[in-house]
């Protein structure tokens, strides 16, 4: 790990001030030379791998009391960005009213990592693409723009089939983000100019020609919280992986439904493990709305969710697997007791 200057921010104002110089150099957020440290589970890992090389770290953990509150008021859920994954997953109100949120957190990582990682850091978690994480591979457009993509013709079994470009097929690794995008969450972003609020769907960027630009967050800005409007008790997160626990998704689905007398009134479908960014399947949602739910509908919806998917040599199976995950998750959500 390269050396860095460490400082601890006592409160949000101090953090924003300490991070202000991060915008110098016009680097993408992930290359900014000053990085905030929260749970550290991604940042310190990637610093040890020499993938991230900040020259200064601002420890924002003292912001936890101010930015870690979780509240459910007037049917809206507000999640502070410094809340730890484990605490939110264990919250009975969230388990009852937003099972997709609780389960997306519960099925992620390990108990230790969930105790450490914050919600804000979690959505910014970086890809597990081997060629990105191992700097001995020169070709990585995300890490080294313009160098090519070693995954294209490499071992790409875990790579994305949706939202890919000819520059990058790295999978977005998180789970919680799928719940947020499915439920139309908004995200509060705090910086020197104050706090701005954007739809969560506008936080992440598809790789396109610039896979090094992963989010619309600017250097020096911090995620301060998330808001989900309305309750979604009929919601589920299904995650399929190579082992039963403590593994990234090969394919996952975040589903939220409003069903009355067997007819779907509203539907949300988001996919994980198969796309380069948190992925909302709007075509699939449109197909569900107003329909009587049955097996045929679930299969049709699953087909639509993967329209336009494109595989490389080792990840073709993800398209078939992903469709089955969508269909099974829909069944799970429709039949759950609420």
């Amino acid at each position: 790990m390269r050396s860095f200057a460490y400082q601890r921010a006592a409160d949000p104002a101090a953090a924003i001030q300490a991070l202000a110089a991060a915008s110098a150099g016009n680097n993408p957020l992930t290359e900014a030379e000053i990085q905030p440290l929260a749970g550290g589970t991604t940042l310190l890992d990637l610093m040890k791998l020499d993938v991230m090389r900040p020259r200064a770290i601002v420890d924002i953990n003292p912001l936890s009391p101010a930015w870690a509150t979780v509240s459910l008021e007037n049917g809206n859920l507000r999640l502070g960005a410094m809340a730890r994954m484990a605490d939110v997953a264990a919250n009975p109100e969230i388990q009852q009213n937003y099972p997709v949120v609780a389960d997306s957190l519960k099925f992620a990582a390990s108990a230790q990592l969930r105790n450490m990682a914050t919600l804000g850091g979690n959505v910014l978690q970086r890809t597990r693409c081997t060629y990105f994480r191992d700097i001995s591979y020169e070709a990585c457009n995300k890490r080294n723009p313009g160098s090519g993509c070693a995954a294209m013709d490499g071992f790409n079994r875990t790579h994305a089939v949706l939202g890919t470009s000819d520059k990058c097929i790295a999978t977005y690794p998180g789970d919680f983000a799928q719940a947020l995008i499915a439920l139309d969450a908004s995200v509060d972003i705090t910086g020197r100019a104050g706090t701005r609020t954007i739809p969560f769907a506008e936080l992440h960027k598809a790789p396109g020609d610039t896979p090094q630009l992963e989010t619309t967050l600017a250097p020096g800005e911090l995620i301060s919280g998330f808001t989900i409007r309305g309750r979604w008790p009929r919601s589920a997160y299904l995650k399929v992986r190579d082992r039963q626990s403590y593994e990234f998704a090969l394919a996952s689905a975040a589903i939220a439904l409003d069903v009355e007398d067997g007819t779907v009134r509203d539907a949300r479908v988001a996919l994980g493990g198969v796309a380069t960014l948190p992925w909302r399947a709007r075509g699939a949602e449109a197909e569900l709305k107003g329909q009587k739910f049955d097996d045929a509908l679930a299969e049709r919806v699953a087909e639509i969710a993967f329209e336009g998917a494109s595989a490389r040599s080792h990840n073709e199976f993800k398209i078939a697997l992903g469709k089955r995950v969508v269909a099974r998750a829909l069944h799970q959500a429709v039949t759950m007791e609420i």
Partner: peptide, 29 residues
């Protein structure tokens, strides 16, 4: 634009200015 392509960029990070900015001009951290 990625600043890695130009390590000599005048806008690139400088620890001295970072410390000065963060600590109100104190040079010895």
């Amino acid at each position: 634009m990625d600043d890695k392509t130009n390590p000599q960029s005048p806008s690139s990070f400088n620890r001295r200015s970072f410390l000065a900015g963060a600590a109100g001009g104190a040079m010895f951290p």
